Computed example of a mutant assay.
Amino acid sequence: MAGKAPAFDPVANDPRSEASKKRDLISRGDYTPTPAGKAVFFLARAADPFLQYGILAHGLGTGFLHRLGVRTLPPGLPAHTGISGIDSLGLSPYRLVLLGMAVGSAVKQNIWVTALSGEPMDIRSAVAIGIFNTVFNSINTYAFLVRATSASTESAFPQSTLIVGSVLYVTGILTELIAEIQRKRFKSDPKNKGKPYTGGLWSFARHINYGAYTIWRAGYAIAGGGWILGALEGAFFFADFATRGVPILNEYCEKRYGEDWVQFKKQTKYRLIPGIY
C-alpha cells in the first residue's frame, strides 16, 4: 500500500554471520523498544552501590573470610568532609573513593541504557550484564578489604595506587561517556543515516568506548587491589575486546558502512587505545 513504512528487517540491518551475532552482547541495527529489559538493567546497576557500601561499611561477607582465616583491614577513621550526607556514611577517605567509583560506574551505565543506547536489551541480558559488573566491582572491593591483597598500605593518605587508579578511572569513564554522547548526537541527525561516526574522540581510536572501558576498569582494580589486580583486570578486558568485541563489531561495520568504514580504518589506525592498539 502506498505510503506504508517498510517493515523492519533485522537481517538487512545486521548482515553479520550467525556466529558473530551469537558472540555479541548487542543486537546491532535493531532498535526495537525493550522497556522491561532496560528497566531491569537500570535497577540492577542502581543496586550495586548499595551492595558495595554494605561491604565497605559493614563488612558484608567478611565473616565467611574470617572463618577461612583471611584477615581484613580495620574500618579506619571516618572522613570529615563537612557534607553531612557523605560524613553520615561513616567511611574512611579511601573507602569513600571506592564507593564513589561504584556509584560512578552505575550512573554512567544507566545514562547509557536510558539515553544513549537505542539497541534492545532483553531481561536475560540485562540480568547477566548487571551481575557481570557487580562481580567485578565486588572483586575490587573485597581485594581492598583483604590485608594480603589490599591496595591500601595504611600509610599516609592518599597512596600511589589510589592516585593512579583514580586518574585512570576518571579518564576512562569520562572518555567513554563523552564518546557515546558524541556518537548519539551524530546518529540522531537524519542527514547522517547510514554513515559511521568518525569525529570527536572516535577519531583517535575506532572503538574508543571499549578502550575507555578497559582503562577505567583497570583503574578501579588498581585502587582496590593494587598493581597486580589492575594489570589482570586490564588484560582481561583488553583481550576480550581485542579478540571478541572489536572483530565482531568490525564485521558489522564493514558490511553496514562499506567504503566509509574502509576509509575510517585508513585514517584511524588504532582500534582501542590511542598510541597503544
Rank of each mutant, 00 (worst) to 15 (best):
V11T: 15
E18P: 01
S20D: 12
D24S: 14
D24A: 10
L25A: 06
R28L: 15
G29C: 09
G29F: 10
P33A: 10
T34C: 05
P35G: 12
G37A: 08
V40Y: 00
A44Y: 00
A47E: 06
D48Y: 01
Q52P: 00
G54Q: 13
T62E: 15
F64T: 15
F64S: 11
R71C: 03
P74E: 14
G76H: 04
H80Y: 10
T81M: 06
I86M: 06
S88W: 13
L91V: 02
L98Y: 05
G104A: 11
G104Y: 06
V107Y: 02
K108Y: 14
I111W: 04
E119V: 01
P120V: 07
R124F: 14
S125D: 11
A128C: 00
V135N: 03
Y142G: 01
E154G: 15
F157T: 05
F157E: 04
L162P: 02
V164K: 07
V167P: 01
I173E: 04
T175Y: 01
I178C: 00
F186R: 09
P190V: 05
P196K: 05
H207T: 11
N209V: 08
T214P: 03
A218G: 07
A231S: 15
G234E: 10
G234H: 07
A235S: 15
F237Q: 07
A242H: 10
G245N: 08
P247N: 12
N250W: 03
E251P: 03
Y252A: 04
Y252K: 08
Q267R: 15
Q267S: 15
L272M: 07
I273W: 05
I273K: 06
